[in-house]
């Protein structure tokens, strides 16, 4: 780099640029927060959904599955599993784990009550109705 471009100029551009783009990011975040209710399905967050989210978290489901494409890649996407499988299948599936099929990837049994299973399914239903700009490309996730 040429000598007319000094270190202190570089430093000033660094501070100015960083602050500018951080503020722009904050502004976009404010706008996002305002427009979010149109897409985020938050009107359907019930106490049951809230409990379901907590069950999702405290059993670390994200440690094997993706949810809206984020998480682990060991087991199927669950953001749209409500649409793929429906509520009854999901509950029976969770209750009947692990399959114990030799060599097959195993999912633990989390010993959930029927009420907890309903909460979890309600959370997955709520998630499946978030407007994700048509992602995933098809029902297989």
């Amino acid at each position: 780099m040429s000598t007319t471009f000094t270190k202190s100029m570089a430093r000033n551009i660094f501070y100015g640029g960083s602050v500018f783009f951080f503020l722009l990011f904050v502004a976009l975040t404010v706008d996002t927060t305002h427009t979010l209710p149109k897409r985020d399905n938050s009107q359907n967050i019930t106490p049951s959904v809230e409990r379901g989210k907590k069950l999702w978290e405290t059993n670390n489901c994200i440690g094997c599955h993706t949810l809206l494409g984020e998480g682990a890649y060991f087991a199927p996407e669950l953001g749209n599993v409500y649409k793929r499988r429906g509520p009854e299948f999901i509950k029976i599936w969770i209750k009947s784990q692990p399959t114990g099929a030799p060599g097959r990837r195993q999912m633990p049994n989390f010993h959930l009550t029927d009420e907890e299973l309903d909460d979890l399914v309600n959370f997955l239903k709520y998630t499946s109705e978030i407007n994700t700009a048509k992602w995933p490309p098809n029902i297989e996730g």
């Binding site: 640029g17 960083s18 500018f20 783009f21 951080f22 990011f25 996002t32 399905n41 494409g69 994700t132």
Partner: peptide, 20 residues
């Protein structure tokens, strides 16, 4: 890094329900 990376966070906001 910062002028690209801060707004670049948006590459994680495509399909999670954030504005398009």
């Amino acid at each position: 890094t910062l002028i690209t990376g801060i707004i670049g966070t948006g590459h994680h906001y495509y399909w999670i329900g954030a504005p398009e």
